Simulated assay, not measured.
Amino acid sequence: MIIADFLNYLQYERSRSLLTVKSYGEDLEAFEAYFKKLNCHLSWESVDSDIIRDWVESMMDKGNSATSINRRLSALRSFYRFALSRNQVRKDPAREVRGPKKAKPLPQFVKEKEMNGLLDSENWTDDYKMLRARTIIMMFYETGIRLSELTGLDDASVDFGGRQLKVLGKRNKQRVIPFGEELDETLKTFLQLRDKQVGKQSDALFLTDKGQRMKPAQVRYEVEKYLSKVSTLAKNTPHVLRHSFATAMLNHRAGLESVKKLLGHESLSTTEIYTHTTFEQLKQVYTEAHPRA
């Protein structure tokens, strides 16, 4: 009866859809069946927070997703708030129970052989747009900078003598990123062609054909255009190249703290997600290579 009262309240007083009412009913019946199986003398009034936590754990053990479990918990909380307001129960045991955190998806990255195939392709020409696109992609992949950081680069940001970039990151924090010989030569070639064909009308490093600083949308378009030629990912964005930089660094034995500083992360826990990516890659290699895997 207590569940029926709540469902009538949802349908007639809150005007919830029939599908929502049905889902709430199924969730509440599932919990009632659970606690009655534990002890047939238990009731909605006598259930405590520990029983609800045990229910959550049992759903996790059965492989239910965090989204599904949290949806059921939400239904239970709504039910107890209603029952408490109608004096059908004297306490709300669901209020203090927290559901499982949603697992963060692993960052998508482009494999090294795909990046090598793109950057070393013979299809690149000396055309300004193509040289600019290749330089931008190389800059993302070899430094790990963000899109906003790249479009904010000026000529003065590049120190060719020390082979390093001065980048203005989040919250106006500056960091210095080293770069290698290949990017050094590519940048110099690009700058020569840029000054010859476009001229120097701005302090910006990457200029449009009309000599203006490139906007994020323009950079994003060029990255997607060329990256999609070698990548099968659903999204081929500058951020994917940032992920690819971090993954490549860790795969080649860079320390986690060093990668954190290069990426400009505040917390090491943010950088640690890339270790999961490299471990998944390691598992795949093991499975494919070991004869008894």
Score class of each variant (00 low, 15 high):
V223P: 15
G255N: 13
S244T: 12
K235R: 13
E29W: 06
V21D: 04
R86H: 04
K200T: 12
E266V: 03
V110Q: 14
S15L: 14
L205S: 04
V167K: 08
A234E: 15
T277Y: 05
F6L: 01
V167P: 02
S74P: 11
K91A: 15
W124L: 13
M115W: 11
M60C: 02
C40N: 08
C40P: 11
D54G: 08
N123T: 10
V110G: 15
N236L: 09
A66R: 02
R163S: 03
I52Y: 00
S157C: 05
H265T: 00
W55R: 00
L282K: 05
I137M: 14
F31D: 00
D155V: 12
Y80I: 12
G255D: 15
K260L: 14
Y34M: 14
G144I: 03
T275R: 06
D27A: 06
T151F: 11
N39S: 10
R132F: 11
E185P: 02
E29S: 04
E112S: 05
D127I: 02
A94N: 05
E182V: 13
K261D: 09
N251C: 07
E122V: 10
K225T: 15
L84F: 10
Q174D: 11
D203N: 07
Y141Q: 03
L263V: 07
K113W: 05
R95A: 12
R163G: 01
I52D: 00
T151N: 06
S258D: 03
D154P: 01
K113S: 15
P216C: 12
V223S: 08
Y128Q: 12
L282P: 02
K170G: 11
H243A: 09
H252R: 10
I145H: 10
Q281Y: 15
R90K: 06
R98W: 01
M130F: 07
Q11K: 03
W55S: 02
Q212N: 09
E222F: 09
D54N: 15
K111F: 05
T237F: 12
Y226T: 02
T232D: 14
T287Q: 13
E122K: 09
D209T: 13
E224C: 07
E57T: 13
A103H: 06
S23C: 06
G161S: 03
I52W: 00
Q174V: 13
R53M: 07
D5C: 01
V167N: 08
E288F: 04
M60Y: 12
T247C: 13
A75I: 00
S78V: 01
N236H: 06
S78N: 05
K261F: 12
A66W: 01
Q192L: 14
V219R: 07
Y24A: 00
A246Y: 12
S231Q: 11
E266K: 08
D92W: 00
F179H: 00
L250G: 02
S267C: 12
D203W: 08
L241Y: 11
T275Y: 08
Y226D: 01
V21C: 14
D203E: 14
H41I: 12
K91W: 14
E222K: 06
A133G: 03
A293T: 08
V219C: 10
E288T: 08
S43P: 07
R16C: 15
P291E: 01
F31M: 06
G169Q: 09
L165T: 04
S85L: 00
K36H: 09
T135N: 09
A30G: 08
L168P: 05
T271L: 07
H243S: 04
K200H: 05
I51C: 14
Q164G: 01
K200Y: 01
L227R: 04
I136S: 07
